[in-house]
């Protein structure tokens, strides 16, 4: 793991990527700080983070698009799989390298609230709490991006998919408000089941596995429908609200340090890293 980590670090910092990413990240935060804290003279640095966390939609793909896809395209994945290291070593090594690339500019951003505190009455705990949550959110999104990158051989494809997923994550809570009719919910749930079944089929290359997932999901929807039709009305919106990564971040912006959210971010990261390892190992079985 250490070797992969060091190697990835040298790739990031020998190339432009780490610098471009850092510059973009600081620019987003900097503009936010400029608008809220300096121009409008608001003492809450967390507002700047809250507004500009949409920046992740562009930033995460920049960071993660090449991480797995490029290995496949250049056939260097074969090198990694012939070396005496495991898939977990590879995925974690790469993930931690990306984490460093992301966290390094954030350390610069950590100075901002401190500077502001010289010129006004800044409540530092909420500022730093929000910064910490911002980093956790970023790390969870990075894991999702990494998994997307492991699904394809093309960087462009990985970036495109990643933007779509990030946008969906960002707007999922807003979208949830619009879907409250039972019929729409059922339809949406069925579509989601079909999507999930397709993904499973693609990952396992087994029609049977895909069908089983589809049947299970449809059965679950049908049972819920039979048992309590009313619960379906709000099932999907509730689910989307509960799963939304960004929605949970706003709790921190509002000045509440929500430990469950931090645990949720860590779980999401761990879950997608696990999927990423599976996606990597899968290659060994399907060639």
């Amino acid at each position: 793991m250490k070797a992969v980590f060091k190697h990835e670090m040298s790739l990031y910092y020998h190339g432009l990527l780490a610098y471009v990413f850092g510059a973009f990240l600081l620019e987003f935060i900097g503009i936010g700080a400029m608008m809220y804290n300096i121009n409008s003279a608001v003492a809450n640095f967390e507002y700047a983070l809250g507004t500009f966390c949409i920046g992740f939609v562009a930033l995460v793909p920049i960071l993660t698009m090449r991480v797995m896809a490029e290995e496949k395209r250049q056939k260097t994945d074969q090198l990694l799989s012939l070396l005496p290291i495991t898939g977990t070593d590879i995925v974690l090594g790469k993930y931690f390298a990306m984490a460093v690339v992301f966290v390094a500019p954030m350390i610069v951003a950590c100075v901002y609230p401190f500077i502001f505190s010289f010129y006004g009455d800044v409540y530092l705990p909420t500022s730093y709490g929000a910064l910490f949550a911002f980093i956790c959110l970023g790390l969870a999104l990075t894991a999702i991006g990494m998994f997307i990158s492991s699904l394809t051989e093309s960087q462009g494809m990985a970036a495109g998919l990643c933007v779509v997923v990030m946008l969906f994550c960002y707007y999922s809570a807003d979208l949830a408000d619009y879907i409250s009719s039972t019929a729409f919910n059922v339809a949406a749930l069925l579509v989601l089941s079909a999507l999930l079944a397709l993904i499973v089929r693609r990952l396992t290359r087994s029609d049977v596995a895909g069908l089983i997932i589809l049947v299970l999901c449809v059965a679950a929807v049908a049972i819920t429908w039979l048992v309590s039709p009313t619960s379906l009305e709000t099932l999907l919106p509730d689910l989307m609200n509960q799963l939304s990564l960004f929605e949970r971040f706003y709790t921190f912006v509002n000045g509440v340090f929500d430990v469950t959210a931090i645990i949720y971010y860590i779980s999401v990261a761990a879950f997608f890293l696990f999927l990423c390892v599976q996606s990597w190992e899968k290659k060994r079985y399907n060639g």
Binding site: H14, Q74, T76
Partner: peptide
């Protein structure tokens, strides 16, 4: 391997 797996950068 058949195609040398090299990091060209």
């Amino acid at each position: 391997p058949e195609i040398p797996p090299l990091y060209v950068d």
